[in-house]
């Protein structure tokens, strides 16, 4: 499995996108949620997905790691490729392994801090030293010093910000190629939120990150590129489309479209 992945990755340059979405549409039991999205998500950068509520940002994010498979009635059309492989041709568990996900509300497992990370390694048949991996992952999210004396106590006793960093560590421990984050700071206080932002700024050197956020200041602080999605109203049916995407400076200061300009400025004023 691993050798296969390496072969595929070796014949593409640094410039190749991690994800390539081609004319992707998603419908929930016949109702279109997102329509015709064509987007390249570059490697080892942080792309922020922004846009008003209901524009389908989270839906897209969940489709990128095939979490929508869990919901009956979801149909995805078009093509989503992860390093040139169509993810819907891949095994779902292989996709979950290679694409990590961090959720809006921190969802540590109701187990010890140690077990939260060890479980992910164990279910994937990790053969290395679990103790070392736990320590390394917790250090990557700057949580090690705070919890190293109570690794065996319940993860549910941690503060919200610590829980979210633990969830990020849990995703990192599996050494994914991409990490998706659905509004990772919306349930956190400003200080905890800032720590996560700093963490993301460091992580993007090593990982491809895709972050959904409603906080435009956060998007400006952490992202390299931004994709703006907008809602469309087709006779009462509301669905989202990709309005524009590009480097963060371009989208925020010289947007190509009026709707992008309106959204970006209405919030920051």
């Amino acid at each position: 499995m691993n050798t296969q992945i390496n072969e595929v990755r070796s014949d593409i340059g640094e410039e190749a996108p991690a994800f390539r979405l081609e004319k992707m549409s998603i419908a929930y039991s016949g109702n279109v949620a997102v329509s015709g999205v064509t987007l390249n998500i570059p490697q080892k950068q942080l792309m922020a997905l922004i846009g008003p509520s209901g524009c389908g940002k989270s839906t897209i994010l969940r489709s990128l790691c095939r979490l929508n498979d869990l919901i009956p009635g979801v149909e995805v059309s078009g093509r989503i490729s992860l390093f040139h492989e169509d993810i819907r041709q891949m095994d779902a568990i292989a996709v979950h392994r290679r694409v990590g996900m961090v959720f809006q509300r921190p969802n540590p497992f109701p187990k010890s801090i140690y077990e939260n990370i060890a479980l992910g390694l164990r279910v994937n048949g990790y053969r290395g030293r679990i103790d070392e991996m736990v320590e390394r992952s917790l250090q990557q999210v700057a949580l090690w010093d705070e919890v190293k004396d109570r690794l065996r106590s319940s993860a549910l006793n941690l503060s919200g910000g610590q829980q979210q960093r633990l969830c990020i560590a849990r995703a990192l421990s599996l050494q994914p190629e991409v990490i998706l984050m659905d509004e990772p700071c919306s349930a956190l206080d400003p200080i905890a939120s800032l720590r996560i932002d700093n963490l993301l700024n460091q992580l993007k050197q090593y990982y491809t990150l895709v972050v959904v956020t409603h906080n435009l200041q956060q998007a400006a602080r952490i992202s390299d590129s931004v994709a703006f999605f907008n809602t469309n109203n087709d006779n009462g049916r509301i669905y989202g489309t990709l309005a524009e995407y590009g480097p963060v400076v371009q989208v925020f200061s010289e947007p190509q479209k009026k709707e992008t300009y309106d959204y970006v400025n209405a919030r920051s004023n």
Binding site: L70, N107, K111, L119, V123
Partner: peptide, 27 residues
Amino acid sequence: VPSTLKEGSIAIGASKWQTIWDLILPA
């Protein structure tokens, strides 16, 4: 059992049975 727990487990690459055995049943 909250669906966020199941999603968290699926997201770390656990199979359905692993999710049930390691997380849902203990919870």
